[in-house]
Nucleic acid binder design. Structure first.
Lengths: 204, 204, 204, 204
DNA sequence: TATGAATGAGCTTTCATTCAT
DNA sequence: AATGAATGAAAGCTCATTCAT
């Protein structure tokens, strides 16, 4: 699936990939370590040698998602004031595009993340810690910036964030839920979502 | 939590309520029948007398959601051509309002539904069967109707549906995820969501 | 083996007896719950229904030993000042006799107790709590009493206790270790032990 | 801890010491080879290179105790007829003193020995083989010798042995069990034990 | 109808041991 | 000689489910 950056042995990668797939398909609690072992073609003991516990394995599946996404987001956001983006739309398009590419490449991992977050408070905390904490601060500044420039209508900043996030999230979740039976024209659909977002957020 | 409509004994209601809460909190696979029995203050055997199996219990938790919501939705939709709703906005407002009330009242049940749908194909089928099948057909007609009236911009009907659903879903999910720490002004937030939807969907 | 006093089901008794035998023979850590289940002719799950954990089972094996022995000891000790025992020897003989009978009847349980005490601090604490705390206080008074009467030589009271206990303990342990190959004439051996004790403790 | 006599590499010594400590603290069955490896700061495989199996490690921990103690005991005993000991007391004092020093120096090893003997028949056999077999024969002669000299009362020789051993054992075990919380004046206590032994064994 | 003791399959995890490096 | 990744059997324990009462 992914497993970039870190030095992982073949076995470790096999375990992570098997776990990712199975967690996505049947949920964390619904997957047994013996299934994972069988799918990864390793002995069951090997899983525990490397990941300590089943929960540890879940964390290892999810944490790259969190650790990798935050820096990517931050880098993009910083471009705003470098004048790389005169128009909000350009920012949002670029942003969704990059993020979507990443999410699509790691779709399964992402599915695990959003499926398991409700059941594991530590995950939620870790997520808030890494994503929200400083990203949100930065995003607030940027939205204020575009509101001043008159590209986004007057509305509480947090509501703007919520709307953007929920539109994008809704877009992605629809994609994830539909996925298999999809006759979903990704490009066109994305265009419409963005267009809709822009018009919806525009000042009167 | 709910358990309207049907004649259920006290014990049955207790079991359903306990199961709903626990499934929402820890997931279906993460909840044991003995936990449910303890929380409902009944013997373990009693659960199986009434609900056959753990899966049967899940279905019993979720099915009111599906069975009750569909007729409600249909009734609303029929009002459109009775001229009860001249403006899309009125329809959507009324619609979201009613549905939200219901969802909020049965939040926990709803959480179980959306959390478990990815893991149980039958649920998805049942959902599609009851909600999509004829509701979607009806909705398509209605959207076409408002597009003809010039209240919704030109766009593939299914995309409109997707956008509405994803906006509303995004709204609700945000609410569910945020819920506890929320200083979330529900009314205002809902207003903004609708306003945003209308502007976003309006013709050029 | 024993299991007096308490209302225990047949299964519970079977489990306790099997566990006692196996713990004595192979030690707590060296015995598996599946062995116990097989020997007790119950399902493995049944053990955990009743005793929560393997450790809980150990405690249930041992605690009667501790709970039953303390009251017995105290009762005997109280007789001293009721003039039931003019001579130390009578006390010690009666005491060892009663206790030995009990220990012999519950030899296996006792073996488990002394074998496992070094590995489970809570056991040691529980033992001290129940046996030592007030028994030792009482014993001190009694030894002082017999020292005043000139039947026990001058020596720190705690050393007297230690010597008595270690002699008796040594006696019992020898018995336990030898047990199977024993051509050990219990009565005569006990006589000699007591005689030896009396002479050894007598004043100059 | 010990590891005298034999040529052992640093690693081997480290393993033996770690094993001795852990076996004493948690018992043989309660200690895992990986714990030992960690404590000895070697790889898990190294243990098996040197000691073949976990059981082999136990034997290697215990055998010095048996192999070293027997010659020491025999040497002492031979002195009896060399007139080095006119009085039993001198013999016993010297004997306990030497042996106790050794046992104290190797307390942990000794604890392992007495804790594990009940669970490993080979150990018991080995012990009997090395200690009992010819030592006991020699001891019998010596006790007969002192009985003839009128320093030990008339009593079956084996009972005398048992009493001595159980007194000494009782003494040592008390020491081992009490050890940590001890305000135990070793010298005085030993004196009293010997005095008690002599008086108890003396002829009428 | 309701109970809860009993089950045994299956779960996560640990273990002693092996072997390629 | 020493390592530690890998193993798979077995450990302790939990589970959904059954059934005699």
């Amino acid at each position: 699936m992914s497993s970039e950056l870190l030095k992982l042995t073949e076995k470790q990668k096999a375990i992570l990939d098997a776990a990712t797939d199975l967690f996505a398909e049947k949920g964390f609690a619904g997957t047994s370590t013996s299934e994972i072992a069988k799918k990864a073609d390793v002995a069951e003991g090997t899983i525990f040698k490397h990941f300590k516990s089943k929960k540890g394995l879940l964390l290892s599946v999810i944490s790259p998602m969190i650790k990798v996404i935050a820096p990517m987001v931050k880098k993009d956001l910083n471009k705003v004031f470098d004048k790389d983006f005169e128009e909000v739309e350009d920012l949002i398009r670029e942003f969704i595009d990059n993020r979507t590419q990443f999410v699509v490449k790691n779709m399964t991992m992402f599915r695990v993340l959003i499926q398991e977050i409700p059941f594991h408070p530590e995950l939620k905390e870790q997520f808030i810690e890494h994503i929200s904490k400083d990203v949100v601060v930065r995003v607030r500044e940027i939205i204020a910036h575009y509101q001043e420039k008159g590209q986004i209508g007057e509305m509480p900043i947090d509501s703007v964030i919520r709307i953007i996030v929920s539109t994008v999230f809704g877009h992605v979740i629809a994609k994830l839920l539909i996925i298999d039976e999809a006759e979903w024209d990704d490009k066109a659909e994305l265009d419409r979502t963005i267009q809709f977002l822009m018009k919806g957020l525009a000042p009167e």
